[in-house]
Nucleic acid binder design. Structure first.
Lengths: 115, 115
DNA sequence: GGTATTGTTCGATCGATATCGTACCAGCTA
DNA sequence: TAGCTGGTACGATATCGATCGAACAATACC
């Protein structure tokens, strides 16, 4: 079975989107962070690259958060030249935990709290 | 230094149920633990006391988890003699984050994983 | 009164993780 | 070719939190 046929250039399409949606605890843990929550809100509104966030962390920390979200099966990333386009895996998430993402995205945004 | 003299009528009625539902991050963090998830599932099915759980932790750890859930506004506890009856604050939670509790409770139960 | 039951609190331990800085790598672009 | 940009990898640090045991408190029961 073809792993990922992204239409030609699959230089990075290998394991970036192949993570299945993780267990409930893992997913909740991935969501239970203000930075990641901000990421998901922004990405859910419109897929974007790492540069498109205004969270007050360095890019290495941002990369770490992306990995956590990716490994929880919440987001997927697609190479776009030198950039990486991040998007929420709405369908898979909805299939695994119906209503969860919806209820979280529709919750009021908390003000950024130092942690 | 004795003479606390609290009168003895309502030792626990005060702040055990008065916590408002916390912010989304706090609530998700409170939910993102297998032990607490098990507690909530059990309590949601039927309010019960601390002894009514089969989680593999000591009672002090259990007490800690109850405090976290209580302070997140997810559960409330009522004194019942020497016992404490715990129940989920469904209405308040539903008002704060519609659909959240529902989606979590209806998710498949993960097998207990060592953490 | 004395004992058992139920639960909290405190101190200690120990693993998880959020964060940063630096180095590094892969594509663009001049 | 070199430089620039977006992103990852790795090591170090520091804080958070889950866990336990022991001590304590309050009520029920004999």
């Amino acid at each position: 079975m073809g792993a990922v046929t992204e239409g030609g250039d699959d230089l990075c399409g290998g394991d970036l989107g192949s993570h299945p949606v993780a267990g409930l605890t893992t997913v909740l843990q991935a969501l239970a962070d203000p930075v990641r929550l901000a990421i998901i809100r922004a990405v859910a509104a419109e897929p974007r690259t790492c540069g498109g966030f205004d969270v007050p962390v360095t890019k290495s920390t941002l990369s770490h958060h992306f990995r956590v979200l990716r490994e929880a099966g919440i987001i997927e990333q697609r190479c776009e030249g030198t950039r990486k386009l991040t998007s929420v895996r709405r369908a898979e998430l909805e299939a695994a935990y119906p209503g969860l993402l919806e209820s979280i995205l529709s919750a009021p945004v908390e003000e950024a709290a130092a942690r």
